[in-house]
Design a binder for these strands. Structure first.
Length: 863
RNA sequence: GGACACUUAGUUCAGCGGGAGAACGCUUCCUUCACACGGAAGAGGUCACAGGUUCGAUCCCUGUAGUGUCCACCA
């Protein structure tokens, strides 16, 4: 016997370990059709947050649903080494523990990093278990493990041989804290307050000067020219002349180039080729020198005279003082401008000329774009995210993939110590003693981009790769479409000639109750484990997956998790009721053909529910799917059928009772199976309490819609019953009568009601019914008119009161009639609207007209 | 500058070419034998604004305003 109250902790206890030990999570049944999905590997940098909980619950629902539908469904787990983020955290911890990190060797550091990884992997495993995720741990991978490293080297060499990876000196974004290059998308541009400084650049051998504006005066040490637009009349006379750089006194040329915007600033632009991407282009065009003026930590280097060794921002202030003292300072204006910050540590990144490895993106992007025009395209859900992807692909720049870190896949390039020759190969050259391997590692996203196939054993043609690749589906947030989704797509197209997955399901972000992004600085983050401790994993899972529209952000609202928990309690208690009434030795049977209308009605509702739930599950619309089930549970099953069954079960007819048992069981079992992918723990608990069950709900099949189980022509009879009961209850409330007050009721049926319906009416109205013929309007009392019946509540109320109520109903009917007439009297409506719609309106008009006549008749008789 | 969302009940959000929905909150009544973490009944909305398409627009199109996000640029 179930407890009176659903207790999530008692329910969830031990179930996960049991499932895992029984091997239910392990894929590999070759007799079934394959379905596969890889988890977006979480970073081994910390705890999982609500966003992870959301993302993984969606996937868990999909996998459990597919397993139940008879697929060999693989959900492959794993984690990401997260290069910069992890290295930064490990370093922080080492510093905190008093380790002198400057003396650390690469190998020593990596030892620390691996032990960090193992700690955090444990945390993540525990969280996955609490969430109840159906992950196949026998196939778990890590982005830095040996097999994946093999895949990474293979891809690197392949792209290099195809000319799609090259080494080049270009302007990259430099993170001076981590002291590594970053790719464009690892730089977050945010609006910061700053100043625009205006300086005088004196013209050589002249009293005149140019006014040049800059936001970064410290870069003036790297200026190699000043540019003006050749069409700019103000500066025509200076073409070919030279100016003095007020920072260091160097003489630099004035160059006329179309690139300069006449309207912007003063129309004269300082050009620093080594520290600005646009200036770099000009520098190349005119063969200018490209002096680098920063050290790796963004302090000033030896090119900066007396400022050498100063931090860039300190240098800025000191340099200003100097220029001011020399009279070359004009003014400064406060401005808001966009400044690049490192995604990982928020420091201001410095554009810097540097030799790095790049992926040539054009050909790869073109292939990805072309693939979207074929049948083998990636199906984005919702579809609009395909635009996001294509737009990025269409405007893509080359991808800087080298990182000056230790924690990552080391670049398989070897430099000959004498000749400097570069060898790129899977394995080190045979005479390795003559070579030195590139010290850099690859961008984390390089290995993540291979995840859907590297995890299955690629490039070896393993059984798993053949069976599970391409994967069926990928679930992730819109925030990493660029970082990850697009890279997986072009990497896979290059490596495999096909996309890595068929569907990409994109969700939004979890925000706080006020709609703000959850962040450490605001301290508004919610720990999923705390929510689980309060409400249980099932309630959290249900909340997360049923309170948002696909692709849209959601808010975490504690009350809604509570509401989810209440819903589960409702299911729990309805199960408790069903289990308590089922007789000893109950056996599940095929539903008999001869069911009562009530039974037929609820089966109709159930079938309809199964159909709409399945349709929406297949569209990954879990909010809609669960909504249909919710309505069935509350409105159809609990409020109506379950209450009605109390009458059925008191019947003397054994057949009626037995059928009711079967129908109750059928409904309950279906509810358990339909809710199961969302809330596996409570579903398992209830399932195992059924008198007939398998070893686990995980071995069950998903309910299937069957049109031939739908019964025609019963819904009207049953719904009439419900309408009458509701109106009688209403009447009592309006008249301040006790809910169980006995009324004198007369009913005139225009359809044949099913046998025994009176018992149900009596039970829920606490009143006897007198069945009469159509003379009902002659009787004293209040008349309710339905499509298929009239109900008279016989009472002693004053005539005025009754007439007032009838007038209200007359007004309502007249309104409806007007609405119908308005439509039907429109010739355009008759000729252009669909025939069914016209017929429907005509039918309604007829019905309302009849009702109106009855009401008027009744009113006249009362006068 | 470009793109994409969003604007519907007090709040959070669904929805839809043909009579406006849910949850929470609110009001009234009810401890009757699944559940008071409950039940029964109810109040509450010119569906942002303006045009257009249509027999008919909350829904489709265009524009406006506001909100949010992303991309690009910024000497």
């Amino acid at each position: 016997m179930l407890d009176k109250r659903y207790d999530p902790h008692a329910v969830e206890e031990g179930k996960y370990e049991n499932w895992k030990n029984k091997g239910y999570f392990t894929a590999g049944d070759k007799s079934k059709q394959a379905f596969s999905m890889v988890i977006p590997p979480p970073n081994v940098t910390g705890k999982l947050h609500l966003g992870h909980a959301w993302d993984t619950t969606i996937q868990d629902i999909i996998i459990r649903y597919k397993k139940m539908q008879g697929f060999d469904a693989l959900w492959l787990p794993g984690m990401d080494h997260a290069g910069i983020a992890t290295q930064a955290k490990v370093m922080q911890r080492l510093v905190k523990n008093g380790v002198d990190v400057t003396k650390l060797t690469r190998e020593e550091f990596l030892d620390h990093a691996w032990s960090w990884k193992n700690e955090y992997a444990n945390n993540i495993h525990e969280q996955w278990a609490k969430m109840g995720l159906c992950l196949d741990y026998t196939r778990e991978r890590f982005t830095l493990d040996e097999g994946l490293n093999y895949a990474v080297r293979h891809v690197f060499v392949d792209l290099y041989k195809k000319g799609l990876i090259y080494q080049g000196e270009r302007i990259i974004s430099w993170d001076p804290v981590q002291q590594t290059a970053l790719s464009n998308i690892e730089v977050i541009h945010q609006d910061d307050e700053g100043y625009m400084y205006y300086f005088r650049y004196p013209i050589v051998n002249s009293e005149e000067y140019l006014i040049v504006a800059t936001t970064r005066p410290e870069t003036m040490f790297g200026d190699t020219c000043v540019c003006v637009n050749p069409k700019d009349k103000r500066y025509k006379k200076y073409h070919g002349q030279k100016v003095i750089n007020p920072a260091n006194g160097e003489i630099i040329p004035i160059i006329a180039d179309e690139y300069v915007d006449v309207e912007f600033g003063t129309g004269a632009m300082k050009c620093t080729p080594a520290h600005d991407p646009n200036d770099f282009i000009i520098g190349k065009k005119y063969g200018l020198e490209m002096p680098i003026i920063f050290n790796k930590d963004a302090t000033m280097n030896e090119k900066c005279g007396e400022f050498v060794g100063l931090d860039r921002f300190v240098c800025r202030e000191k340099l200003l003082e100097k220029i001011k003292s020399e009279g070359n300072f004009i003014k400064q204006e406060k401005i808001i401008h966009s400044v690049g910050h490192s995604e990982r540590n928020n420091c201001v990144v410095e554009p810097m000329l540097s030799k790095q490895w790049f992926v040539k993106m054009k050909p790869l992007a073109e292939a990805a774009i072309a693939n979207q025009k074929t049948e083998k395209k990636v199906n984005f859900v919702p579809a609009r995210f395909e635009n996001t992807f294509l737009q990025w692909m269409n405007n893509i720049e080359d991808w800087c993939i080298s990182r000056q870190l230790w924690w990552g896949h080391r670049i398989p390039a070897y430099y000959h110590k004498q000749t400097g020759e570069v060898v790129v190969s899977m394995d080190p050259p045979k005479d390795i003693e003559n070579y030195e391997q590139d010290r850099d590692v690859l961008d984390t996203w390089f290995s993540s981009g291979l995840w859907p196939f590297s995890t299955l054993g690629w490039p070896n043609e393993t059984a798993d790769l053949k069976r599970y690749f391409p994967t069926s589906c990928l679930v992730t947030g819109y925030d990493i479409i660029f970082f990850w989704v697009s890279r997986m797509i072009f990497q896979s197209l290059n490596a495999n000639g096909e996309a890595p997955f068929k569907d990409v399901v994109i969700h939004g972000l979890v925000r706080d109750e006020l709609g703000r992004k959850m962040s450490k600085s605001l301290g508004n983050g919610v720990d999923p484990i705390e929510v689980i401790d309060k409400y249980g994993a099932d309630a959290l899972r249900y909340f997360l997956t049923t309170n948002s529209t696909p692709g849209q952000d959601m808010r975490y609202i504690d009350d809604k998790v509570n509401a989810s928990s209440n819903y589960l309690n409702k299911i729990w208690n309805s199960a408790r009721y069903v289990l308590s009434v089922l007789p000893e030795g109950f056996k599940e049977e095929e539903l008999p053909k001869e069911l009562s209308p009530l039974d037929q009605w609820i089966i109709n509702r159930l079938e309809k529910t199964i159909k709409s739930v399945t349709t929406n599950m297949d569209k990954y619309d879990f909010n809609a799917a669960s909504g249909h089930l919710y309505n069935f549970v509350y409105d159809d099953f609990c409020s109506q059928y379950l209450e009605m069954s109390k009458v059925s079960l008191s019947s003397n007819d054994e057949l009626v009772r037995n059928n009711t048992y079967q129908v109750l069981f059928k409904c309950l079992k279906s509810i358990i199976l339909l809710i199961y992918p969302y809330t596996p723990f409570i579903a398992e608990e209830l399932y195992l309490n059924l008198p007939v069950h398998k070893e686990s709900v995980m071995l069950e099949s998903y309910p299937k819609y069957e049109a031939n189980r739908v019964h025609l022509n019963v819904d009207k009879q049953v719904e009439l019953l419900f309408d009458i009961i509701r109106d009688v209850r209403n009447y009592k409330i309006e008249n301040k009568l006790a809910p169980n007050a006995k009324l004198d009721l007369s009913i005139n049926l225009r359809i044949k009601m099913f046998e025994g319906y009176e018992a149900y009416l009596q039970r829920f109205t606490f009143s006897e019914f007198k069945v009469v013929d159509d003379s009902i309007v002659n009787m004293r009392g209040e008349l309710k008119i339905y499509d298929n019946a009239d109900l008279l509540i016989v009472n002693e109320a004053g005539q005025g009161e009754i007439i007032a109520r009838i007038d209200k109903e007359i007004a309502e009917e007249e309104n409806e009639i007007l609405r119908c007439q308005k439509m039907l009297s429109n010739p355009n409506f008759i000729s252009k609207a669909p025939k069914e719609k016209v017929a429907l309106e005509e039918e309604k008009l007829k019905q309302h007209t009849e009702n109106l006549a009855l009401l008027k008749d009744k009113r006249n008789k009362l006068l």
